Simulated assay, not measured.
Amino acid sequence: MSEPSRPDAARPAHRSGFACLVGRPNAGKSTLTNALVGQKVAITSSRPQTTRHTIRGIVHRPDAQLVLVDTPGLHRPRTLLGKRLNELVHETLSEVDVVALCLPADEKIGPGDRFIAEALAAAPRSTKVALVTKTDKASKQQVAEQLLAATRLGEELLGGFADVVPTSAVRGEQVDVVADVLLSHLPAGPRLYPDDDLTDEPEAVMVAELVREAALEGLGDEMPHSLAVVVEEIAAREPLPGQQPEDAMLDVHVWLYVERDSQKGIMIGRGGARLKDVGTRARRSIEALLGSKVHLDLRVKVAKDWQRDPKQLQRLGF
């Protein structure tokens, strides 16, 4: 007599693990991270080197959990800050299960992409996939050519990518396919985070990143590299009469650090107009993040040449 089948016998094992999105600065990594998670967990900007922290966004499925690590763009460093950001990327590559190389569809593969692909070859533990991003900015022919070019790059330097997928995070095209592909390469494992967690970044780090995103808008090419943001305090006010404690307004005090007096003037603007505008835009995002009304206090301070000063880099969290 055969043994009765068990209902769980045919059920696939639950998968869980970590995936890292890498690529040249401004390759669409942060936008894709946000699209996969379904909520902003990484700031986006048209300026290179926007991301400075590894942001973990969490994708939940009934049968799997994917933890996305969004890294700074890997590049040839010119400052101590750049060197430390690259070290952060290499450390991440050695720890994740899947690495996805993001290649914008509207830009030909160049030396920077090859530099990153060569770095991936030094991280043998992880499965490698290629994501042709920003397909909304390219024609169908450009996308097809980039898919072929990505395939050739993988064959030449990595023995081939496990998958090559086109996607547009802005339009939401193929985002689910990207998630399916990344999840398929994860090992069997338990859930790593509660179902309602979308990131494990501390609130203060997220707030600082949202302020930095608002501050980057409209700046010249040099300023983004010279700007650092540190949250000094997030404190709840005393509740008003009849108000629940969780509904009380939050006071958020933030320092914006620049490297020169001239940059301080640019950041503040004439009569404080620019800083006020930054605060207005950042406050909306912070209130959405924290789920509370916020009084945002922004102050600008000069930390001369902080990108090249080890002591100041440490004080600013790098």
Rank of each mutant, 00 (worst) to 15 (best):
E3Q: 13
E3H: 11
E3D: 13
P4L: 13
A10C: 00
G17L: 12
F18M: 11
A19T: 06
C20I: 09
G23K: 01
G23S: 02
G23L: 02
G28V: 04
S30W: 03
T31S: 15
Q39K: 04
Q39R: 11
I43D: 02
I43G: 06
P48G: 12
P48L: 12
T50G: 04
T50D: 00
T51V: 14
T54A: 10
R56A: 13
G57Q: 05
G57P: 06
G57A: 13
H60S: 13
D63M: 08
A64C: 03
L68Y: 04
L68I: 13
L68R: 02
D70V: 12
H75K: 06
P77H: 06
R78E: 12
L81R: 03
G82S: 07
L85Q: 05
L88H: 04
T92R: 02
S94P: 00
V96Y: 04
A100V: 02
G112R: 09
F115W: 11
A117M: 08
A121M: 10
A122W: 02
A123R: 00
P124A: 11
R125H: 12
R125C: 04
S126R: 03
K128G: 05
L131W: 03
V132L: 10
T133D: 15
K134I: 00
K140Q: 14
Q142C: 06
Q146Y: 02
L147I: 14
R152I: 15
L158T: 12
A162L: 03
D163E: 15
V164C: 13
V164A: 08
S168A: 03
R171I: 00
E173S: 10
V175F: 07
V175R: 07
V177K: 12
V177S: 02
D180M: 07
A188Y: 03
G189M: 10
L192G: 07
L192I: 11
P194T: 09
P194R: 06
P194F: 12
D195P: 01
D197Q: 10
T199V: 10
E201F: 03
A208F: 07
E213C: 05
L216A: 09
G218I: 04
G218V: 08
D221V: 01
M223I: 13
S226P: 00
S226E: 15
L227Q: 01
V231N: 01
E233S: 14
E233I: 09
A235D: 11
G242F: 11
Q244T: 10
P245R: 08
E246W: 03
E246A: 15
E246M: 09
D247N: 09
D251S: 09
W255R: 05
W255G: 05
E259W: 01
R260W: 05
D261L: 02
S262F: 05
Q263T: 02
I268G: 06
G269N: 06
G271R: 04
L275T: 05
R281E: 14
R281C: 00
A282L: 01
S285G: 04
L289Q: 08
L290Q: 09
L290E: 09
S292D: 00
K293G: 10
K293L: 10
K293S: 15
V300M: 13
V300D: 12
V302S: 14
A303C: 03
K304F: 09
Q307A: 12
D309P: 07
R315H: 09
L316T: 02
L316P: 04
G317R: 05
